[in-house]
Computed example of a mutant assay.
Amino acid sequence: MKYFKNRRVTVLIFCTVLLIALSFISCDELITNKHQEKKKTEQTNQTISTNKNEAKLLLMLSKDNQDVIKLSKALQNIISKAPNVALAKKIEQTHLEIAEDFHEVASDKLISIPNYSEITIKQPLDSDTQDYKIKTLKKLESKIDNQLFLLDKLSKTTNSPDFKTLIGKADSKIEETLKKTKRIINNLITNS
C-alpha cells in the first residue's frame, strides 16, 4: 500500500513539474509571438510610410514637371531668336517624355497624379521686354532645380526598383534641361 502512495505522490509531482514546464514553454512562445508581431507591425508601418513619401515626392515632381512644360511653352512664344526657341522646344519635349515616365510608374504603383499645371504666367502688355523673359527663365530654372532636389530626396527615400529606374532616367534628362535653360539665359543676357 505504501508503494502505491509513494507512486501516486511521485506521479503527482511529475505531473506538476510537467505542467509548470509546459506553462513556461507556452509563455515563452507567447512572448516570442508578440515580439514577432511587433516587428511585423513596425515593418508594415515603415513600408506604408515609405510608400506615402514616395507618392508625395512623385506628385511634387509631376507638378513641377507640368510647370516646366507650361513655362517652356510660354517661352517659345516670347523668345525671338530661333536657337533659343529651339532650346525651349527641346526642354518642353524632354519634360513631356519625363511626364510619360512619371505616369507609367504612378500607374504601376496605383498613384494618381494630375496632368495640369497650377502655375500662372502673367504676360505684361509689352512681353518683348528682356526683364520679363529673364524672370520667366529664372522661374523655369528654379522649377528644374527643385525637380533635381526632389529626385535626390526620392533616391534617398526609396528602395523600389521602379523608382530607382525612374530616377536614373529622369535625373540625366533634367540635368540636361537645366543646362539648356542656363544657355538660354546666357544667350539673352549676352545679346541684350
Rank of each mutant, 00 (worst) to 15 (best):
K2V: 10
Y3G: 11
Y3H: 06
R7H: 05
V9T: 10
L12Q: 10
I13L: 15
F14P: 01
F14S: 12
C15W: 06
V17M: 08
V17P: 02
I20F: 12
A21G: 07
D28F: 14
I31H: 09
T32I: 05
K34E: 13
E37R: 11
K39S: 06
T41A: 14
T44A: 12
T44M: 12
N45T: 05
N51S: 14
K52F: 07
K52I: 11
N53R: 08
E54N: 11
E54W: 11
L57H: 06
L58P: 07
L59K: 13
L59P: 05
L59R: 02
M60N: 11
S62Y: 00
K63C: 06
K63P: 02
D64I: 07
Q66E: 15
V68I: 15
S72T: 08
A74I: 02
L75S: 08
N77H: 04
I79V: 14
N84G: 11
N84S: 15
A86Y: 07
L87T: 11
L87G: 05
L87P: 04
K89F: 05
E92F: 08
T94G: 05
T94W: 08
H95I: 02
L96Y: 07
L96A: 14
E97K: 14
E97D: 15
I98V: 15
I98G: 00
A99M: 08
A99W: 03
A99L: 10
E100L: 05
F102K: 00
V105A: 03
A106P: 10
A106M: 04
S107M: 02
S107R: 09
D108V: 09
K109H: 00
K109A: 00
S112V: 09
I113A: 00
I113C: 00
P114R: 00
N115G: 02
Y116E: 12
S117V: 00
I121Q: 03
I121W: 06
Q123L: 13
P124W: 15
D126V: 13
D126N: 15
T129N: 04
D131S: 12
Y132E: 02
K135H: 10
L137M: 15
K139D: 08
L140I: 07
E141L: 13
S142F: 13
S142T: 08
K143W: 01
I144F: 06
D145G: 12
N146C: 02
N146W: 09
Q147I: 09
Q147M: 14
L148N: 09
F149S: 03
L150A: 07
L151W: 10
L151N: 09
K153L: 14
L154N: 00
S155K: 13
K156N: 05
S160V: 04
S160E: 09
D162P: 04
F163E: 01
K164D: 13
G168A: 01
G168Y: 00
K169T: 01
D171M: 09
S172P: 03
S172M: 06
S172I: 12
S172C: 02
S172T: 10
I174M: 01
E175M: 07
E175I: 08
T177P: 02
T177W: 07
L178D: 01
K179E: 03
K180R: 04
K180C: 01
T181I: 02
R183M: 08
R183P: 02
R183Y: 06
I184W: 08
I185G: 07
N186H: 12
N187T: 07
N187L: 01
L188Q: 06
I189K: 05
N191M: 04
N191H: 11
N191C: 01
N191K: 11
N191G: 04
S192P: 10
